[in-house]
Write a protein that binds this DNA or RNA. Sequence first.
DNA 1: GTATAAATGTAAATAAGTTTACATTTATAC
DNA 2: GTATAAATGTAAACTTATTTACATTTATAC
Lengths: 226, 226
Amino acid sequence: MTAKHHHEINGSLSADCMTLLEPLLSIRHYADGELIFARGEYKAGLCIVLEGSVKVGNYGTDGRYFLSKVLKPNESFGEFTIFSKLPRTHTAEACGESKVAYVSPGKLKKAIMNQPEIALQLLQSLSTRLHMSLEVMDDIKRLPVAVRIAKLLHELNREAGGLDVRSLSQEELASQLGVSRMVVSSSLKELNQLGLINKAYRSIQIPNTQKLLAWIKERQQIKDLL
Amino acid sequence: MTAKHHHEINGSLSADCMTLLEPLLSIRHYADGELIFARGEYKAGLCIVLEGSVKVGNYGTDGRYFLSKVLKPNESFGEFTIFSKLPRTHTAEACGESKVAYVSPGKLKKAIMNQPEIALQLLQSLSTRLHMSLEVMDDIKRLPVAVRIAKLLHELNREAGGLDVRSLSQEELASQLGVSRMVVSSSLKELNQLGLINKAYRSIQIPNTQKLLAWIKERQQIKDLL
DNA sequence: GTATAAATGTAAATAAGTTTACATTTATAC
DNA sequence: GTATAAATGTAAACTTATTTACATTTATAC
């Protein structure tokens, strides 16, 4: 991919967007594990993670937990409660001490009418996230778990800014991918033996990002993009 | 779900939105199977299906085809090429004689700045589609194929306006769900034996929508929304 | 009508991932 | 340091879906 065409794929809100939204925000603090929104609630509003993280997922009738995504600062959720009048379909909980901003539907819509740049920013975030979501769905359909784990690790590594992925349990990886912990364990063993990762207790290092990426690309099943 | 809260979940563009966008559209006709955009292309632009349908998917390096979605009139695609400057990640092909509208990035952005209502409409479409996509991903993680087929049939049936789903091969269903034709065949057999569908050659009828929905809800694994 | 192509049915062998169960390692609280 | 909890390793039994292979049914072109 040429430099000209290289763009970070990231669904979080840009600094510009945060500046534009700042006057609209009501800020709330949450303790670790505290409920932010529950599945089924009709209270609409855009939420933006400012500090800490937010776990979005659902509890099955049998008590099992299905994780959808762990949101980090500048990531938003709940757009559809504003623009599509749908109820909350996922439960959001603070993951560690967290600071979350809230924007009411009325305020946001009014702001968009006055400052359409806000809309452009939100459109960027939503279109990127839709795109990422569709890509992940494609991956689920065609890639074995080991490759999907490799992609997730690479992604987490990139987001964290090239650092090693500390304090990340295999349980969490499994939850994030929607697979069992056991298959994560054996896949990581495989990646480790190939020298693509260095695994330790609650920690995975990627010694060579390029090498990992090359390994993934070989297994993508579809033609590479430029 | 109360009437007050009932909303059709649908990612397509509203009639209002189509009216707003009308002056911006360049229209093109495509023959059956004709290429609209190929994976990797950088030509940005929003596309809206006006007539016929558009198949969005990708061809694997081994020739296998992975279908993402079949788009029907008033459904759009390619937003992320405008708002996120990403290349086309999927190949779009006409599926039968089709009429597709095209909006250039410049025109669309300018129109949004002048008429922010357009942005609200696009935000609705995108947030709904993101939401639907995340729901499907949840389903993939926790539901057996038979239930996912039932949900897809119910959805197709609803979209088609309560009619039977004609001219729908099991191959297409399999492609859409990303599973093999054989498991679709046996799942349909199961649904048929339960009296939830009537299947025939290239056609599936749903005799009782409520009954099918009830069967699905029993198997959703998570608490029903209201 | 008949031949052909498309779609569907079915079943055995295989593969991938889950579940269950328990051992082992590592961190942390006291 | 030691006890305890959390995380990880591993393997067998099981489940689900794929692959391969072929038979059968249905539509369509001639």
